[in-house]
Design a protein around this nucleic acid. Structure first.
Length: 638
RNA sequence: GCCCCCAUAGCUCAGCGGAUAGAGCGCCGGCCUCCGGAGCCGGGUGCGCAGGUUCGAGUCCUGCUGGGGGUACCA
């Protein structure tokens, strides 16, 4: 059974169509802004007024009549109010038990998307830490967004494959290879390898300025890595393997995992890039200038005006956001392919447009699969990876231009459907507040409002360090170590998810380490409290009719019933923050209910007792569901 | 220069073109004869500026101002 808001919307849509409304008019059902008018409201009559050339209040009255006739369950009254709202007043007595029963059902089918949207496979790529250093909070934001979107899609019934692209042939890897070889730094006794490499990275970058020979060595090293020359390629692989292990361990602390790791070096070694390059040359979409600043490069030229905009302008929503694609160097004059070039090959593979495939094996027992350039005994069967119908790349906003270039390359190669199915889920970065920057040794005398994090300069907040620090803060009150770790994970995930994607998170230690108010710890506390109550009251059957509800009880019931709408919106807009905001509202509604209704174990009347317990249980179950979507493991006690 | 994003309360942020714009933090004052106080209650006129579209604009459009980013043979 669909949720009430959907039923209301459908009834209104049918009624509006009968009055001659155009298709696709937005019904806009939402909780009533004016609580005395009703519980759910729609302003659709006002939107139809112009088209139907009749006063909104008259249209509203007719819609209300039709909705009444539709006989939606649990509706006490359909009313018209204000300038033309159609409102539902719910019949608490049957509505509340129905909501509770739905919330306590083992699987919430109301979360499923329409079958059409569940067809086909979506590939979500996220994390993409350069495998030369420890992950910082910026990478954490990326991974939390990607992981939460994945959980939302899966809750909606969409098949998802999560990929983590390992860019192991870029310059930053060459930096660390050179640094390890030349700097003679030694790893501290308790220093994790990823942290050690971060230190090497900072130091080698500092040295480049004084020692041009090192810069030259980096260039040679990069070329060797790209050309798969041994032993340097193997040396690089050894470093990146250990870093990837460390990065995956960091992400696992927040419950983030992957189906497949795709290695850029495999893309090169298996000739994916060669094939993509050949195809692009065959299609004559590349330029190869012999003079000028780009002499000797292979370039994907800037799109001609109108060329990329002649189709379905705006259908994909973000085609207008990037402007025309900028000219993009794919192969440098020294013959080395750029990241964008390799990403074009990667995306041809993702969509199943390449004839070649990787070999696959298990990265670690119970872990993700990983691509491989060579076949081996016990390899996983090919063919089950890739072949996506839709691709969502979680990559920060600064990389919009290269992402656009990838899409443009697909389009010009004639893969128009795939170009349209490629979504860059752009989000803003995590920057440092002046206080945070200062504590990391950044000079803040220029008085800026925020400072960019930089792994290269060591001005970043390491992910593990943050999780550790939150863990220390909560340990005193947490029952045990495992609980403290889960609280820390909840705090960090919630902190990184509660902002909208377009907001720069100006990282501040005080804010990130807080455990009261709008935080993941508050959510966990509300859940644990609900569990605590339930253990004090034996399970009872739910009455068919609810007693008269108090204000907080009504609010809680309505909030519980909103989950399907929230998940649908999070899916539609790929906006994980909506789930975070909802979880906080639900926790608040539950705490309000808790504070303002009597102690359940003292209630003698079995019906009232059964109802209150059921409501607390439904709140618990729904909060657990919301937390699960956020990748937070709900705690039964703290 | 051109392109993109952002601007909402002292601070950090929510807010799908719809009714009286909401939270958290901070500050002040309350609430435990205990179902978990990491909680609850009370204390508030704030959508950068100027136009425009609309029955209706914090939300859409244009311009301006301020902040961030991109525009690399880095990724």
């Amino acid at each position: 059974m669909p949720d009430l808001a959907s039923e209301f919307a459908h009834a209104l849509a049918r009624a509006a169509a009968a009055l001659g409304a155009p298709d696709g008019v937005d019904i806009g059902v939402e909780p009533s802004g004016e609580p005395t008018a009703g519980d759910l409201s729609s302003p659709v009559a006002q939107r139809l007024a112009r088209h139907l050339r009749r006063p909104p209040i008259v249209i509203a009255a007719e819609l209300a009549e039709a909705v009444t006739a539709a006989g939606i369950p649990h509706v006490a009254l359909v009313t018209v109010s204000g300038p033309g709202y159609v409102n539902l007043r719910l019949d608490d007595a049957t509505y509340a038990p129905a909501v509770i029963a739905e919330a306590l059902a083992p699987a919430d089918e109301r979360l499923l998307a329409p079958a059409r949207e569940r067809a086909g496979k979506t590939i979500v790529e996220h994390t993409q830490v350069n495998p030369n250093k420890a992950a910082h909070v910026g990478h954490l934001r990326n991974a939390c967004i990607g992981d939460t979107i994945t959980r939302v899609l899966r809750a909606r019934g969409v098949p998802v494959e999560v990929q983590n692209y390992i860019d192991d042939t870029g310059v930053q890897v060459a930096d660390v290879v050179v640094g390890l070889r030349r700097l003679a730094l030694s790893q501290g006794r308790d220093e994790p390898f990823d942290q050690f490499c971060s230190r090497v990275y900072v130091e080698i970058c500092r040295r480049y300025e004084a020692e041009p020979a090192l810069v030259e060595e980096r260039r040679r090293t990069l070329q060797a890595i790209e050309a798969r020359e041994q032993p340097i390629a193997a040396e690089a692989r050894a470093v990146t393997t250990r870093i990837v292990e460390a990065n995956l361990a960091t992400m696992a602390r927040l419950g983030i995992d992957y189906d497949l790791l795709t290695w850029e070096s495999d893309i090169l070694e298996l000739g994916f890039w060669r094939a993509a390059f050949a195809e692009m040359r065959r299609a004559e979409i590349l330029e190869h200038p012999l003079v000028g600043p780009l002499a000797g490069c292979w370039v994907l030229p800037r799109s001609a005006v109108g060329e990329s905009g002649d189709d379905d302008a705006g259908e994909s929503g973000d085609s207008a956001s990037g402007g025309p694609g900028a000219a993009r160097v794919l192969v440098k004059s020294d013959g080395v392919a750029t990241y964008t070039a390799k990403d074009v090959a990667n995306h041809l593979w993702k969509f199943g447009l390449l004839e070649q495939d990787f070999h696959y094996r298990r990265w670690a027992p119970g872990g993700p699969a990983t691509s491989s350039a060579v076949a081996a005994d016990g390899d996983l069967p090919g063919g089950r990876f890739g072949h996506g119908d839709r691709v969502v790349n979680v990559i920060d906003q600064r990389q919009s231009a290269p992402q656009l270039a990838v899409r443009e390359a697909l389009r010009r190669l004639g893969h128009r459907a795939q170009a349209d199915a490629l979504h860059h889920l752009a989000y803003e970065v995590v920057a440092l507040s002046p206080a945070a920057a200062r504590s990391l040794g950044v000079d803040t005398d220029d008085g800026r409002s925020m400072y960019a994090m930089s792994g290269r300069r060591g001005a970043d907040v390491r992910a593990d360090a943050l999780i550790d620090e939150v863990g220390r803060r909560v340990r005193a009150k947490a029952g045990d170590e495992r609980t403290a770790n889960r609280l820390a994970a909840a705090a960090v995930r919630y902190y990184l998810l509660r902002f909208s994607l377009g907001a720069i998170i100006t990282f501040d230690f005080d804010e990130a380490l807080r455990t009261t108010g709008n935080t993941g710890v508050y959510l966990q506390y509300a859940h644990a409290r609900a569990c605590g109550i339930l253990t004090r009251v034996a399970p009872l059957s739910l009455p068919e009719r609810a007693p008269a509800l108090s204000g907080p009880e009504r609010e809680l019931v309505k909030c519980i019933d909103r989950l399907p709408q929230v998940v649908a919106a999070a899916h539609r807009s790929l906006a994980p923050g909506l789930v975070a905001t909802y979880a906080f509202q639900l926790a608040t509604a539950f705490n309000d209910f808790y504070e303002h209704t009597g102690r359940i174990y003292r209630i003698a009347d079995p019906e009232l007792r059964g109802f209150r317990r059921g409501l607390a249980d439904a709140a618990r179950a729904t909060l657990a569901r919301a937390l699960g979507l956020l990748g937070i493991v709900p705690l039964d006690r703290i």
